[in-house]
Design a protein around this nucleic acid. Structure first.
Lengths: 213, 213
DNA sequence: GCGCTCATTGACTGATGATTCAATCAAATA
DNA sequence: TATTTGATTGAATCATCAGTCAATGAGCGC
């Protein structure tokens, strides 16, 4: 089972990296810290990764893959109802699994390093692009079905997107001022304003506060 | 005028630091780069600042002071109309003076370093607190005057705040996907949903697209 | 148990970059 | 002009880390 252990160590190191960046910030993350966090010797990192840069890049890729997996899973689970799907996006992004302080701090750390690092930029922007495309499609679909003719669905999708990211920042900067339920409520309030029939107080279906996540 | 030159050099170095972080990211910003950017010798930095850490801290303080200055100025300028004031906040935060890619990138860089750096944390959170307090007050006031009784003004303020921050991230990550006018529109759309009489399409006053900024 | 293979260790090396400081230079003053 | 004061330089020093590698150890087949 040689491949298995290889995979295990790599994952351990990547997860240690995430914890260390979350705790110390990007600029003060050293390989020694990562190795110690993973309870391995300092030399091991270059054995499993081409370089520190390689480890960091794979850490970001890992983070992105994990996030995209949970996110697409939840959206698929609700079938083809765009209202429920949009609601599911809010639920996932601000839910207990994804919206965790340490993890969010690492996302912000990578975002902050994007200037001058094409690889990070490409990875993050491609993910953001796929994510936005979904949100956009849902908003268009809701507008179409609901007969909201003169509504700019792109802008709504961007706005929702931005609000969610902003709440991630809140969580990262000061967990005391972040309130999961309130964050979700604000997002739904925004959607209620533009799609009253679907998300407003009189909406029959998905988007009222059923969930507690 | 010895004090004048002292002040000048310090400002030059701080502004060079901002440019370098904006271009290279936090983790790859060295004193040599900063000095070169300011067209000064490498040794000079320790002459004007206690250490690299000191320079960075003062850079953040400078950034915060500048931001708060322009922001409070604009809000004060509109008098005591809370609708106009809230609108002015959007206008400033997403306007040409404040919402500049390089500067925003530096903000994000400092945010990302907040874990494990109490000084940054305190500075950023105190600023955020003052800012939020304003937004909160305006929302409450609008709700009170407009007779929106069962409206959670705090959540609205948080939501607006988050959306603006999220748009800053958009600008930083990919200027192509950021659109100043659209960002403002999304913010106003959110407010229109919760305060229709003040920000909605039928609102008489301030919040329709007068400005072009 | 014996040897083989591969994972792991941790001391070492070299590079990078913060910091120091003696020497230089320029401006102000006498 | 000579002197003094303080700004500025850049080479030298020192610390920190990434990356290397010979030595060790653990598991596995014989």
């Amino acid at each position: 089972m040689r491949d298995a252990i290889k995979h295990l160590r790599r994952t351990e190191l990547i997860e240690a990296t995430i914890r260390v960046i979350g705790r110390r910030g990007f600029s003060r993350t050293t390989l020694a810290h990562v190795a110690a966090e993973a309870k391995l010797s300092p030399g091991i990192v270059s054995f499993y990764f081409s370089s520190k840069e390689g480890l960091l890049h794979e850490t970001l890729a890992h983070l992105a893959a994990e996030y995209e997996k949970t996110w697409t899973r939840s959206v698929r689970a609700v079938g083809d109802d765009p209202v429920a799907a949009l609601d599911a996006m809010i639920e996932v992004d601000l839910g207990r699994e994804v919206c965790v302080r340490g993890t969010v701090a690492v996302w912000v750390a990578f975002w902050a390093e994007m200037p001058g690092r094409p690889r990070y930029r490409v990875l993050c922007n491609e993910l953001a692009e796929r994510y936005f495309e979904q949100a956009r499609r849902m908003c268009h679909e809701i507008a179409r079905r609901g007969g909201y003719d003169d509504l700019d669905a792109d802008t709504i999708a961007r706005g929702l997107n931005a609000m969610i990211d902003g709440f991630w920042l809140d969580l990262m900067m000061d967990p005391k001022r972040f309130d999961r339920a309130r964050a979700k409520r604000a997002c739904r309030q925004f959607l209620a304003g533009v799609f009253p029939a679907e998300f407003g107080p009189l909406a029959a279906g998905a988007a009222s506060g059923r969930r507690t996540g």
